[in-house]
């Protein structure tokens, strides 16, 4: 058991290092995230200028939300990608057969790798734009150390939920050979229902209720509300519990899909 833990840490570390090779890409990404942060900040300021209490946020909350979104965009791999892209490619080429006869589970292996990637993206693409947001727009910081800690936990859970969905998307390659179509579809839903495009608190009526119940809410809306101090006490636990529940359910589905898919690979003689 301890050996397996060490193995996953090693996998995560390698993924971290792999992404850290591309320095120019990282700088270009931080620059781009910041440009989008500035654009959306002005758009939200115009919105909250016309309606100062929209969605229960004030203008500072709204601008903070924008920069949190930019910081999370790559960390949670909102558009798809990350370790699961490697998996999809290996399914297409058939190399996944090698993954399947390794003495460790595929889900755990790729999750470790994706957490390593997420750690790198958080430290660079997450922290970078946040600093710009702090300097240019005076964004809010977590209200207390409890909220900061809860935010950290929520962030990890956000990555896990996002990983599970991306893993399922990559698994479609077992049947379709090419994941790109499903990936774009899934990315479209993720952008909309995560609150990346517009905070879910602005969504009206049943659409808002639906959006806040779907797993994508774990990506941006839940961590952002924790950062902004919207929840406290049991509300905080409920928010984290929501993410845990989706993480557990989705990871279980990943295992199930993998089992079905494995049977298919064997049938093909792969």
């Amino acid at each position: 058991m301890r050996g397996a833990g060490m193995l996953h840490v090693a996998v995560a570390t390698r993924a971290f290092r792999r992404y850290s090779t591309y320095r120019a890409a990282t700088l270009a990404g931080i620059f781009t995230n910041s440009v989008f942060g500035i654009i959306y900040s002005f758009a939200y300021l115009a919105l909250w200028d016309a309606n100062p209490t929209a969605g229960g946020y004030d203008a500072q909350d709204a601008v903070t939300y924008v920069w949190l979104g930019q910081a999370l965009l790559m960390t949670i791999a909102l558009w798809g990608g990350g370790a699961t892209d490697d998996l999809a490619e290996r399914i297409r080429t058939g190399d996944v057969a090698i993954d399947l006869y390794r003495p460790v589970g595929i889900v755990g292996w790729y999750l470790a790798s994706d957490l390593g990637r997420a750690a790198y993206h958080l430290l660079t693409r997450g922290v970078g734009p946040t600093l710009i947001g702090l300097v240019v727009f005076d964004i809010a910081l977590p209200r207390s150390s409890v909220h900061a800690l809860a935010f950290a936990a929520s962030l990890v859970l956000a990555v896990v939920v996002s990983f599970a969905i991306r893993f399922l998307v990559a698994s479609t390659a077992f049947w379709l050979l090419d994941q790109s179509g499903v990936k774009v579809m899934s990315g479209a839903f993720a952008i909309f229902f995560s609150g990346m495009m517009l905070p879910l608190v602005l969504f009206p009526g049943w659409l808002g209720t639906l959006a806040r119940a779907l797993p994508w809410a774990s990506y941006v809306q839940v961590p952002a509300d924790i950062w902004l101090g919207t929840h406290s006490g049991t509300g905080l636990l409920a928010a984290l519990g929501f993410q845990v529940a989706w993480a557990v359910v989705l990871l279980a589905v990943c295992q199930g899909v993998l089992r079905v898919a494995t049977r298919k690979v064997v049938v093909q003689g792969g």
Binding site: L176, L177, D178, Q179, S180, G181, V182, V184, M185, G187, A188
Partner: peptide, 11 residues
């Protein structure tokens, strides 16, 4: 990859 093609356009 027709499925992907259609899904990409729709997506």
């Amino acid at each position: 990859y027709p499925t992907s093609f259609v899904l990409l356009a729709v997506g």
